[in-house]
């Protein structure tokens, strides 16, 4: 008698990207660095460039990216990742060089390095995580801290009269002719996260094609230093950060359409 056995169809639909190691991250609950890591890792895997990539870590919460990404990596001095990446990329023009930087690192102490790397049109990709606060040192005011936002070094709220205004880095860099792809995305909900992933993928393709400097700014949460629960932190981002830091494409050269 013929016996028919049903064969279950097994298909992997979700797994750890090859580009991520099995290290547990040190990030606080609700921090969006983990999402940003995952998106970058997926993009590297999808392009098949893991073994061609050198990642430059910043100083700040994401200093340990070299533990989490299964790629060649180094740690820059605070803010100097774009200069270090320049040195790497100039010697290795056929490799993919990526910096991963926070807002204190990129907008404050490293403002000069990112500006000139962008102006030179360095063929590097910068993942810029903007959570409006210094995370690793415990929640001090960053150049991206919103007016009135309370931090441990602006306990009464950021005051314009003494510290001026938050810097919109994507807008600023997009004015430079060396830039090819400058966009801002947010990580506060699934739809935004999907758009962020697509932007990271495009930014890496921009580097592959040698079109110029590329940066993806990712609006992120810092529940610990904001003093807000993770779910409320996502809402806080949407309510407070999005109006000042609108998501959008600030510089996309025409060649990007063909990628």
């Amino acid at each position: 008698m013929l016996q028919v056995v049903a064969q279950p169809i097994m298909q992997t639909v979700y797994q750890r990207p090859e580009c991520l190691t099995d290290h547990h991250t040190h990030y606080c609950p609700g921090c969006t660095h983990g999402i940003a890591h995952r998106l970058l890792a997926e993009a590297i895997d999808e392009l098949g460039i893991r073994t061609q990539t050198v990642l430059v870590a910043p100083v700040g919460c994401s200093v340990f990216v070299y533990d989490y990404f299964n790629v060649d990596a180094c740690v820059a001095a605070h803010g100097r990742a774009p200069a270090m990446a320049t040195g790497l990329k100039r010697v290795l023009p056929d490799r993919m060089v990526i910096t991963y930087q926070g807002d204190g690192d990129l907008v404050s102490i490293g403002a000069g390095e990112i500006l000139h790397a962008a102006a030179r049109g360095e063929h590097i990709t910068t993942i810029f995580v903007n959570n409006a606060v210094y995370g690793m040192t415990g929640g001090q005011m960053a150049p991206t801290t919103l007016v009135g936002q309370k931090t441990t070094s602006s306990a009464q709220g950021r005051s314009v009269s003494s510290t001026g205004y938050p810097i919109r880095m994507s807008e600023l860099l997009s004015s430079l002719d060396g830039t090819a792809y400058i966009v801002r995305r947010s990580l506060h909900d699934p739809a935004s996260i999907r758009k962020a992933k697509k932007a990271i993928l495009t930014a890496l393709k921009v580097q592959q094609a040698g079109l110029g400097f590329g940066m993806v700014e990712l609006l992120s949460t810092c529940p610990t230093n904001w003093g807000i629960a993770p779910d409320k932190a996502l809402e806080w981002l949407e309510t407070n950060m999005l109006p000042y830091y609108p998501v959008g494409d600030y510089k996309v050269v025409p060649e990007v359409a063909a990628l």
């Binding site: 040195g87 790497l88 010697v91 390095e113």
Partner: peptide, 26 residues
């Protein structure tokens, strides 16, 4: 070969740091 005039000595030495990571004479 690679020559680059940096925007500052701070940037120059950090470019050297990056290039040195590749194992070339810098």
């Amino acid at each position: 070969r690679v020559f680059l005039q940096a925007e500052s000595e701070v940037a120059a030495i950090n470019m050297v740091y990056g290039a040195a990571c590749t194992g070339v004479r810098v």
